[in-house]
Design a protein around this nucleic acid. Structure first.
Lengths: 197, 197, 197, 197
DNA sequence: AGTTAAACGAGACGGTACGTCAAGTCTTTAT
DNA sequence: ATAAAGACTTGACGTACCGTCTCGTTTAACT
């Protein structure tokens, strides 16, 4: 029997519970107001169990964000309609930014500095960007295949353009871009750059 | 005689001294590690003199950033060469981001939330963007005048594109975009979008 | 009018309040269960205000005990009846041991070690013993004057004998000696040693 | 087979190992700084093995002190010279106080309170005092037999006087009485009280 | 010029959260 | 079946800043 409801959580079980608690706190009070004690209390864990795993709030939140990211369905199958596909992904990014992941990124950005551990920062950034690059690259490749997209559009700076615009809008406005803004981004910036004609 | 070494500063004199101290602290330790006590000590002021003027760290830093912005030479005369003009302004933005203003923005972004005072946030964002919009708009207008730029490029989303790319790069990397990256931004994204033919 | 009820306590006022709180806690829960946070809370003070004044619990409690001692009426006028005078003082010591001072001494004893700061310990011990020595010496001197006490009884080891027996009884039993025990101490040990015939 | 080097200790074997570890810790860091984890580690035992046997630090240490006491040679044959015999026993007590047993008593005293379990305390006190009473009583009886000691000296308060003075000196000074002090105790207090002439 | 009220520097204060430590409990793994 | 190992919850520790408040002192404005 695996009846462990009454028994004490350990290892991964506990870790998951902490992540869930951290993400909920993040969503409720935001990164700047997130207290380790609140996370511990919500996870019904001791503070020591948090500090044993992560040296500080920043590391815990990054780990929680990564945990969230890996537990999210990232499957995506391009339809062939480049604009529709891009819009769909961008709306999904917006949804994500509205939740704890958005808060996590905001906190991460706030504590980032040129003098901080650059390798660590680079790793995190790549972990965030890589999945997006792949998705947008796939969309563009489909477009190239059916002749609607210029082959030169596969340059990383252009592949990343749409998500970067989303990020910028989110960070500077405090909330994700609306659908209207996404439409503008697509029609005025991204599509003109990648379209083949 | 303005011998004020021994005398006590008041009013604007004091305010300026606090701003300078805040900006220096910002440059040295970054927003996340900035302590009100450190600013007060560096300005040889009491903490009460800070809290009398601004309700919290966030407000002080925003005010300091505004103070810095107004004291900087923003005069800009377009040469007619759109690419060169844009690059010049973007390099200037990069310089700025490397200093205390960059830290101020990072801190502001870190504390921003969808639930915060949106009007206040909007005002600050506009105060940051307006001068840039004007500069880039002027550059584009000159280009339109000499036929190198499409008239449709005057849409705010496109006018703001270059500074937005700069902001995004700065926030996500922890340091301003390098010259090479600025070149890429211009040649792969901005110029293709605004060029007339 | 010295109506300062509404204003914030500082300096000695605050110190006194902390001492009172510490002594009350001491009386209620004992030294071993005394918590700095409880003292701070009872004194309506921040923990930092405690730690600013004393490095740890031990120092705070010693200071509180000293404060108590200095605020107690130690005046004593020998009546000439050596046994009655000694009994009176011993009962007073018993009373004292039953209160916070007793707890303070118990705690001090518990933390004392051969390797601790001996000078400090010596100072405290003397501060405790000196007043007693004087009182008992005065009693014996009066007895010598009226011929009921041997002059050799003025040796410190004998002068201190009665209080030392009180201390030993208190420390080993957890509560002060009863009147019956004090009678025995006097009749079987102290008086036989000091009486002149 | 008595090959126990590689096999796991159990029952009494383990208990003895824990006692030894506790006594060593006691001697090294004192009661106040004794950590259960340190005892467990030194005994190469799990903490659970400690808590299974004793409910807390206090009980473990008392048990360890008792264990020590029973394993010490308490055989004593009075020589007939009361002063020499008493001095020999008092020096032995001093030796004992300098070791872990002294620390154990100090800790016990520190945690004792009027409100604690009095029966338990009484039992422990008697366990400590009984062997001493017997030894000193035997010495005095020998003295009475050869006419050097008054028969009235057999009252418990007087029989216990010498060890009580030792205890008091040890607890208040942090270290056992020196030989010079023992001489004074004997010549100024104990012997005058018990001598027959 | 002398007086007065405000502004100021210094820093003590009540308080919150930090990150650490050890206590005592519980689970897992090895003997 | 029992012990070793050590992960876990709990709660106090002592520290660091927060934002408020009090104290004298300095300065500007007004008798």
């Amino acid at each position: 029997m695996t009846d462990s409801t009454a028994s004490r959580r350990r290892g991964d079980d506990l870790e998951r519970a902490i992540f869930e608690a951290a993400l909920e706190e993040l969503a409720e009070v935001g990164y700047a107001n997130l207290r380790m004690e609140a996370v511990a209390a919500r996870a019904k864990a001791g503070k020591a169990s948090l500090y044993k795993r992560w040296p500080d709030r920043a590391h815990l939140i990054r780990a929680a964000a990564r945990y969230k990211a890996t537990n999210v369905d990232t499957a995506f199958e391009p339809s062939g309609d480049v604009r529709a596909d891009m819009k769909r992904v961008m709306l999904r990014i917006a949804e994500n930014q509205a939740g704890p992941s958005g808060e996590a990124m905001r906190g991460w950005v706030g504590e980032l500095r040129a003098t901080s551990d650059e390798e660590e920062a680079e790793k995190i950034r790549e972990a965030i960007e890589q999945p997006r690059i792949r998705v947008f690259a796939k969309i563009l490749e489909t477009g190239i295949a059916n002749g609607t997209v210029r082959p030169e559009a596969l340059h990383p700076r252009i592949v990343n353009l749409a998500p970067n615009l989303m990020t910028q809008a989110f960070l500077m406005k405090g909330r994700p871009a609306s659908e209207a803004i996404i439409d503008e981004m697509l029609d005025m910036i991204v599509l003109p750059l990648v379209s083949s004609d």
